[in-house]
């Protein structure tokens, strides 16, 4: 139950930001019966363009008041004159005046509720995002499994600690076959500053595919990767880096490690403790950064009560 309560999707800012507004000219419609004609005329004269999410018309909030219609988005200092010209050519429109409307379509229920306070908008709820926000994205059996894998990562962090390493553990899993592909921990204290737990894990995955670059000291006997026979290796040549795999790591990866996961095409990342230098939610959101060619899902706070204890004294 605790995992369910704490597991939180790290969503792109666009899903969590407040509603931005912009000014547009609106006008009153005196005679309701003329509405459809005015709508037709206006949609030709001044289409909504980037404001397609707006409903063109709203019934005034006050009883007995006329309908209001969006005329045009203001462009420059002379736009009132321009709008006035348009309004003159459309019969039945009152004098244009400015109103605030949401400038972008709402992406979540919360944003929708905020947006309609300004002006009625269309809203197509993304079911997947909605379930992530509500915390119902995973089923109970899935949550149990996630917890099990994170427990492994915590064990690895402890194992690293007994070998005088920074206690960060990482596990790479194939979520379809449930195979553990790699078990890793941080090795920075062994002398090479770049051997963070995630970098070690990524190299162990490469080893599992017959590649890999680093040879790890035998002292670090808990580091493991899946070993397949030669025939299996050729048969499973559809494997490509970390494509489709899940990573469980006790602490939020730094920007180097997060970008390594982009390059490795990881499927999903679950981490426990956040970290101010972390790049999957704290200092960056590398996993959903526009511009990068691979995006993935990230969930934080996984068994955080336990992972936080690893970093209490640091």
């Amino acid at each position: 139950m605790t995992a369910k309560a704490r597991l939180e999707a790290v969503l792109a800012d666009k899903f969590i930001q407040n509603v931005d507004t912009c000014d547009v000219f609106i006008a009153n419609i005196a005679d309701k019966k003329q509405t459809s004609r005015i709508m037709r005329q206006l949609s030709e004269l001044c289409p909504l363009e980037k404001l397609q999410h707006l409903k063109r018309i709203r019934a005034s909030t006050e009883k007995g008041m006329p309908l209001q219609i969006v005329v045009h988005k203001p462009i420059g200092p002379d736009s009132y004159q321009a709008v006035l010209e348009i309004v003159k050519t459309v019969e039945g429109l009152g004098k244009p005046y400015l109103a605030k409307v949401p400038s972008t379509p709402p992406l979540t229920r919360l944003q929708y509720n905020e947006a309609v306070k300004y002006w009625p908008v269309n809203f197509h709820e993304d079911k997947e995002i909605a379930s992530m926000i509500s915390g119902k994205y995973f089923t109970d059996p899935e949550l149990l499994e996630i917890k099990q894998f994170m427990k492994m990562a915590i064990k690895l962090a402890h194992a690293g600690k007994t070998r005088d390493q920074i206690p960060i553990g990482a596990v790479v899993v194939n979520p379809i076959s449930k195979e553990i592909i790699a078990e890793a921990y941080d090795l920075r204290q062994a002398g090479y500053a770049l051997q963070h737990a995630v970098m070690v894990a990524v190299d162990l995955v490469a080893h599992s595919q017959g590649g890999g670059m680093w040879n790890f000291d035998e002292i670090f006997c808990e580091l493991r990767h899946l070993k397949r026979s030669a025939t299996e290796n050729t048969e499973s040549s559809s494997e490509y880096l970390c494509t489709g795999y899940d990573l469980y790591v006790t602490q939020e990866p730094c920007v180097m490690c997060s970008m390594a996961l982009v390059h490795s095409r990881i499927g999903r990342v679950f981490y426990g403790s956040s970290n101010s230098g972390g790049a999957l939610g704290s200092s960056y959101k590398v996993h959903c950064q526009s511009g990068f060619n691979h995006h993935f899902l990230v969930f934080k706070g996984c068994l955080q009560e336990q992972t936080d204890k690893l970093y209490d004294d640091s």
Partner: peptide, 18 residues
Amino acid sequence: NEVNRTKNATRHAEIIAI
């Protein structure tokens, strides 16, 4: 770059040089 040879996407030229 040695990504293809090592099957490790982090084997960029800079890392090899380091």
